[in-house]
C-alpha cells in the first residue's frame, strides 16, 4: 500500500497470482514532465479496483499505458506474468486481446450496426477477409447475441449506433469489450457523459458482469461516491504518483484532501465519508 493511512490489509499489493502487475511505471509525453511517476500496484483475479484522482493526475494515461496505447517511458507491466513493455507488434496484439477496454465516449463506429460494433471486439482473432465479408464465427455471433441480451439490448442488433442513447452506447461498448473474453477489464470513465441514474445502472452492470465471470477490472472514475459504492479497493493518483491504495472504506478526509486538495473537499465537491452530498446510494 502506498501512503494509505489505516489501510494495511493483508493481500493488497501482492504480486502472487495477480492478473496485472505494474511496477515503477513512468510515462512522459515528449520532453515534458512525467505524467506517471513510478506507479506500482497489482490486481488479483476477479478484483474490482477503482482509480480516482483529480483531472490531469494520470488516470487515463495509466490505463492507456497498461494497454500500450501510450508507450511507457520506463517500468514494467505484466499481464498474467507476460511482460508487455517489451512485446513486438504481433505478440502485443495477442496480449491486447486479453484486455477488454471500455472507453469514456464509447468509441463506437456510429455508422455500423450494434452487432457489427460488438463483433469488432473479435477482430483480433477473426481473419480480415472473413470480417470484411461479415462472416464472423458462429460461436462469436452467438456470444454477441448473448451479451446483447445481458446488456438489455435484445432486438437492437441491426440498429445503427448513432441511433442509440448514451447509456445504450456504453452498453454496446461493454459488450464489445466482453466478447474478447478478456482476463482484465480496463474501464476509462464509463459514466462521464451519463446522468446519475444511468451512471449507477452502468456501474451496476459492469460490476455484475465482472462478478459473474470472475473478471478483474481497473475502473477510472471521476465520481468518488460511485467508486466507493462499486469498488472494494481504490487506487488514488495525485500528480502522477499513487497517493492511496487500499479498501474504499479507508478513503478518509485526509486521503481525499491529499488527492483532490483542501478546497475541493471543504466545498463538498468531493464528498467525504460523512458527507451526504453527491452520494450515489
Amino acid at each position: 500500500m502506498t501512503a494509505s493511512p489505516g489501510s494495511d490489509l493483508d493481500g493488497y499489493g501482492s504480486a502472487e497470482h495477480s492478473v496485472l502487475e505494474v511496477e515503477d511505471l513512468v510515462v512522459r509525453y515528449g520532453t515534458g514532465a512525467d505524467v506517471l511517476r513510478g506507479v506500482s500496484f497489482t490486481l488479483a483475479p476477479a478484483e474490482i479496483v477503482g482509480l480516482i484522482g483529480a483531472s490531469g493526475a494520470g488516470k487515463s494515461t495509466l490505463l492507456r499505458a497498461v494497454q500500450r496505447l501510450v508507450e511507457p517511458s520506463s517500468g514494467s507491466v505484466r499481464l498474467g506474468g507476460t511482460e508487455l513493455t517489451t512485446l513486438g507488434t504481433t505478440e502485443l496484439r495477442s496480449a491486447r486481446r486479453r484486455m477488454g477496454m471500455i472507453f469514456q465516449e464509447h468509441a463506437l463506429i456510429d455508422r455500423l450496426s450494434v452487432m457489427e460494433n460488438v463483433l469488432c471486439g473479435t477482430l483480433g482473432r477473426t481473419g480480415f477477409w472473413q470480417a470484411v465479408r461479415r462472416r464472423f464465427d458462429e460461436a462469436d455471433v452467438s456470444e454477441a447475441f448473448r451479451l446483447l441480451h445481458r446488456m438489455g439490448l435484445e432486438g437492437f442488433e441491426d440498429r445503427r449506433c448513432d441511433e442509440l442513447s448514451g447509456g445504450q452506447k456504453q452498453r454496446v461498448g461493454i459488450a464489445r469489450a466482453l466478447i474478447q473474453n478478456p482476463d482484465l477489464l480496463l474501464v476509462d470513465e464509463p459514466t462521464a457523459s451519463l446522468d446519475p441514474a444511468a451512471s449507477v445502472r452502468i456501474m451496476t452492470l459492469i460490476s455484475d458482469v465482472c462478478r459473474e465471470s470472475g473478471l478483474a477490472a481497473l475502473i477510472n472514475l471521476h465520481d468518488v461516491p460511485l467508486a466507493r459504492r462499486f469498488c472494494p479497493r481504490i487506487l488514488a493518483l495525485h500528480e502522477g504518483r499513487l497517493a492511496f491504495d487500499g479498501p474504499s472504506l479507508d478513503l478518509t478526509d485526509d486521503v481525499l484532501t491529499a488527492v483532490y486538495g483542501e478546497e475541493a473537499v471543504e466545498s463538498h465537491v468531493v464528498p467525504t465519508p460523512g458527507s451526504e452530498v453527491g452520494r450515489a446510494d
Binding site: 486481446r97 477488454g100 473479435t122 470480417a131
Partner: peptide, 16 residues
C-alpha cells in the same frame, strides 16, 4: 483506438 485496444490488425482497423 478501440480496435487497436482489441488487438485488431492494421487492415481490419482500416476496414472497420
Amino acid at each position: 483506438e478501440a480496435l487497436t485496444a482489441a488487438g485488431a490488425p492494421w487492415l481490419s482497423r482500416i476496414a472497420f
